[in-house]
Amino acid sequence: MKKNESYEEFIKGVWRDNPVFAQVLGMCPMLAVTNSAINAVAMGMATFFVLVGSSFLVSSFRNWIPKQVRISCFIIIIATFVTIADYTLLALVPKVHKELGAFIPLIVANCLILGRQEAFASRYPTRLAVMDAIGMAVGFLIALLSLGAVREILGDGALFGVKLFSVNFEPWVIMILPPGGFLTLGVILLFFNWFKFKKDEFLDDVAEAERRGS
C-alpha cells in the first residue's frame, strides 16, 4: 500500500500531470534552452537537483516554517540550490554552462519548482514530497529532452552532437531558432490533447457499453 502511494506520486508527475504537457509550467527554459539535446539534458538535470533538494528541505522543515513567511523561505531554499547548481556546472562542464548562460540562475523563477513546494512539499511527509519531486523533475526532463531531440534532429541533422544524416541533409535552421521551439511544443501539446480526448472518448464508450449490458 505504502509502496503504491509513492509510486503513484512518482508516476503522476511523469505522465498524467506532466509539468509541461499537462500543466504547461516552466515554459521559459522549455522554449529557450531546448535547441540541442545536450542542453536540454543539462537543464533537466539542474532542475532535477534543485526541485528534489528543495522539496526534501521544505517538507522536512514544514512544521517549523511559519505560514506567513513560507514563500520567502521557499525562495531562499530554492535560490541556494540554484546557486550550488550554477557553480557546480561552471566548474565541471564550463562549455554547457556557457550555452545555458542566464537560464541557470533563472531556475529560481521556474514556477514549476515554487509551485511544487507550495502545493505539495509543504503539506505532505518527506517521503511523498521527494517522490513527487522526482516524478515532476523526470517529467520535466522527458519533456525537455523530447523537444530538444526533435529540434536538434531537424535543425542540425544530429542528436547529442552525432550527425545522423548524410551531407545532403539540409538542416531546418528555423527549428533551432526560437520559432522552432514554439512550433515543436505546439505540435507536441496538440498530440497530448488529442490523446487525452481519444482516451476520454474511449472511457465514455466503455461506460456506455457497461450501462447497456447490465
Binding site: 517549523w64 516554517i65 511559519p66 506567513q68 513567511v69 520567502s72 523561505c73 531562499i76 531554499i77 535560490a79 541556494t80 546557486t83 550550488i84
Partner: peptide
Amino acid sequence: LVLTLAIAGLISGIA
C-alpha cells in the same frame, strides 16, 4: 518570523 528568515538566510549564506 524575523528569526526564521534570519536563520534561513544565514544557512543559505554559509552554503
